[in-house]
């Protein structure tokens, strides 16, 4: 390899040397100077700008057409539906601005490419035009701000629902743990100094409300149609609990308890029957087959989305959304952490 690099370097030097000779030779034959831009140069670059404009906007639509089907499926939570609708409006708007503005830019770049003997129009300012493109963006942004903030306030409001299910997501390098309140519906308090091999999330052993808490790893379940209140904690560094299918994300910060709430509206089983998801999974399984890997089924997932160390890229937990009955059955099968009390 070292030899290859050496050869590469030598070739590069030879190439550079040849390039220098070409440049120097061509200069002898050239009429113009490096600073003088000929009509040919202008016309070439003007046309290239126009061509680029077409290709660029074409590339944009090509990507939308080809890759939108790889995007996340429609939101699987109630607030997420609103987020998606707002997203679509904003996306249409900015795509419109993007296409129009670039179209004008590249068209003008072509149309007004310099020619000898032409004089540009002295046009230094125009108050009406400038007012126009101050006021139109300002009004548009007012709408964007109003809708954005309205939804944001709804989403971040504290959970008031009496039937809510509280789940704690506990992050550490490099995995997740979920904790449920148990029969007393109260999460036991915690103390990071009591963390040890048998007390992974640092339950306070003096707090009896924690004895019936339920701790699960790898996979956690939530009932459909009920508000889920998440409380996030971290043991070591900042992590971020990202649940993209529900349009939910919140950092897990050591020393703090952060919150996020949402109401899932589709069970995992329902999602697996969704036509878009079927199409999405077909694409995924096709790609997996090429790599020689087993096909997979759709699952909701919790990822870490804040750099947290070497295995940041593999910090995941499966989320199962199911009917309330199935959820209760599942929960009943989980063991409480009562063992801690015995100490």
């Amino acid at each position: 390899m070292k030899l290859l690099i050496l050869i590469g370097l030598v070739l590069l030097i030879i190439a550079a040397h040849q390039l220098m000779r070409v440049v120097e030779l061509s200069r002898q034959f050239k009429k113009g100077h490096e600073w003088s831009v000929s009509d040919t140069d202008n016309s070439f670059n003007g046309k290239a700008m126009l061509l680029f404009g077409f290709l660029f906007i074409g590339f944009f639509f090509w990507q939308v057409n080809r890759w939108s089907d790889n995007s996340l499926p429609g939101a699987a939570s109630e607030h997420g539906l609103k987020v998606d609708a707002l997203w679509d409006y904003n996306m249409y708007l900015i795509s419109f601005v993007f296409v129009i503005t670039n179209a004008f830019l590249f068209y003008f770049s072509y149309k007004y490419a310099g020619k000898k003997g032409v004089k540009a129009t002295f046009f230094a300012h125009d108050n009406r035009l400038e007012m126009l493109w101050t006021i139109v963006p300002a009004v548009t942004l007012a709408f964007i701000i109003i809708f954005g903030l309205k939804y944001w306030n709804d989403i971040t409001e504290r959970s008031e629902s009496p039937n809510k299910v509280t789940v704690e997501l506990y992050a550490k390098q490099f995995d997740w743990t979920a904790r449920y309140a148990g029969k007393d519906k109260v999460l036991g308090s915690t103390d990071y100094r009591q963390i040890d091999g048998g007390n992974d999330v640092g339950l306070d052993t003096l707090d009896a409300t924690g004895y019936d808490d339920i701790i699960v790893k790898n996979e956690f379940h939530i009932p459909v149609g009920k508000e889920i209140e998440f409380k996030m904690r971290s043991r070591d560094v900042i992590h971020s609990a990202y649940m993209p299918h529900f349009r939910a994300q919140m950092n897990c910060v050591p020393g703090m308890v952060t919150e996020f709430k949402f109401t899932p509206n589709k069970t995992t089983a329902e999602m697996r029957k969704d036509p878009y998801v079927i199409q999405l999974m077909a694409g995924i399984n096709e790609a997996r087959a090429k790599k020689g890997e087993e096909p997979v089924e759709f699952d909701y997932i919790l990822l870490c989305n804040k750099i947290c160390g070497a295995s940041h890229y593999n910090m995941q937990m499966t989320i199962v959304v199911e009917s309330e009955k199935d959820y209760n059955d599942w929960l009943a099968k989980q063991k409480a952490v009562r063992t801690i009390a015995a100490k």
Binding site: G46, L105, S109, Y112, T121
Partner: peptide, 12 residues
């Protein structure tokens, strides 16, 4: 963009 409009663009 308006600066380009009706200019005599020199493509340096």
């Amino acid at each position: 963009i308006t600066t380009l409009w009706k200019g005599n663009i020199q493509y340096t």
